[in-house]
Design a protein around this nucleic acid. Structure first.
Lengths: 180, 180
DNA sequence: ATTCTCATGTAATTGGTTACATGATTGC
DNA sequence: GCAATCATGTAACCAATTACATGAGAAT
C-alpha cells in the first residue's frame, strides 16, 4: 500500500502510542506543523483508510458519554512505517510568499524593497518565538529526535531572519542611502 | 479581485515583459521554482482567468504556422501587482519529508537515524548544485533582486546541509560510537 | 528521418483547507 | 450558566500535479 502524505504523519505519530484523531491533530500542531501540517479534513478520512488497509486499529474508548476512538498501529502498520522510514526522502517543497515578493519587488521604491526583506525577517522571528514556546513547554531533551527537529526549526528560522536583516541593511546602504 | 497563488507568479513574471504561457513556465522553473512552483495545469487556466478579469491581455503572435499567444500586463494588472507587492506576506509553508523521517526515526537503529540526516544533507547539497548552475548560466548581478533570491536559495540550502552533517556527526559520536 | 524544443490546452486525480454540524465534559 | 476544551465527522471548495492529446519548427 502506498502511504499518502497525511498517512505518513499519522503512522509516525501513533508510533509514540495510541491516540485519537483529535490528539493526533494537536500533537502534529505542536511538533511537525512547521514543516508537515495536517487538518481534520485530512486526518479523519485517512484514519478510516489506514484502518481499512489494516495498518491501524481503532477501538472505542469513550470517556463518560463522550464519543472517543483510539487508534494504534498494527504489526503491518509498524512494518509500513519502518519501510517508509528506511528509505531516502522524496518530497521537499516550499511556498514562500515573502521571497516571491522580494523577487518581484523591483517595481517598488528602494524603501519598499527593503521593507519586504524586513517583513520576511519579522515573519521568521515570530516563527522562532512560537517554536521557543514549544521548547519551553516540552522541555529540552538533548538525545530525542523530535527535539533535534525542533532545534532545526528554531535555528533555521533564526538563520533566515538574520540573513534577511543583513541583506536589508546592505541593500539600504548600497541602493537607497547614496541617493538621499 | 483576489489573486490566487499562481496568479501572483504570473503577474510578477509578466512585469519583466510580455511572455507566452510556455515562457512563463520555463522562467518560473529557472527562478522561483525552489520556493514557488507552477505547472501548465495551473498556468493556462489562470492566464484565461486573469485575462477575463482584465489584469492581462493576450495577443496572437504566431511564429510561422506555430500557434503562439503572448500576454502582457494591463494597467489594472500592474496596479494589482503593486497592491500585492506592497503588503506584508502571508503564505509560508513547507513539506519536508526528510525532516519528518528524522522526527520519527527513533524506531530505527542509530546508524539508520544518522543516515536519515545524511540523506537530508545530500538532498540539500544537490539543490545547491542545481542553483549554482542557474547562477552560472544567468551570471551574477549584485543589485538585482532575482539574484538576491537566488543567493538566498544557495546559501540557505548550504546552511541546512551543513547543519545536517554537523548533527549527524554529533549524534554518531554521542549515540552510536559509545556502544561499539 | 528523428529528436528536441516551442507551444497550447484539458481531464483525471490527489491533496488540502475551511467552514460547518453536533455534542459531551471541565473549569470558572 | 458560560466558555473552553475534547471529540468526530462531512461538504464545498481550492490548488496542484500528472498524464495525455496535438502539432509546428529547428537541429542533427
Amino acid at each position: 500500500m502506498e502511504l499518502g502524505p497525511t498517512g505518513k504523519a499519522i503512522l509516525g505519530t501513533l508510533s509514540f502510542g495510541p491516540k485519537t484523531g483529535y490528539e493526533i491533530k494537536s500533537m502534529v500542531d505542536r511538533s511537525t506543523r512547521f514543516f508537515w501540517a495536517a487538518s481534520y479534513g485530512q486526518i479523519y478520512p485517512e484514519l478510516r483508510r489506514l484502518a481499512d488497509a489494516g495498518l491501524i486499529e481503532g477501538t472505542d474508548a469513550p470517556q463518560g458519554g463522550r464519543q472517543r476512538k483510539e487508534y494504534r498501529l498494527t504489526g503491518a502498520g509498524h512494518e509500513a512505517l519502518l519501510r517508509w522510514l528506511d528509505s531516502p526522502p522524496e518530497t521537499y517543497e516550499m511556498r514562500h510568499e515573502g521571497m516571491l515578493k522580494v523577487f518581484f519587488a523591483g517595481g517598488l521604491e528602494p524603501a519598499g524593497q527593503v521593507q519586504r526583506l524586513r517583513d520576511m525577517a519579522e515573519q521568521h522571528r515570530r516563527k522562532v518565538s512560537a517554536l521557543r514556546e514549544v521548547e519551553e513547554a516540552a522541555g529540552k531533551s538533548p538525545d530525542s529526535l523530535p527535539y533535534l527537529v525542533l532545534r532545526f526549526g528554531i535555528e533555521s528560522n533564526e538563520w533566515i531572519a538574520d540573513w534577511c536583516e543583513r541583506e536589508a541593511a546592505a541593500r539600504w546602504n548600497r541602493v537607497a542611502a547614496p541617493r538621499t
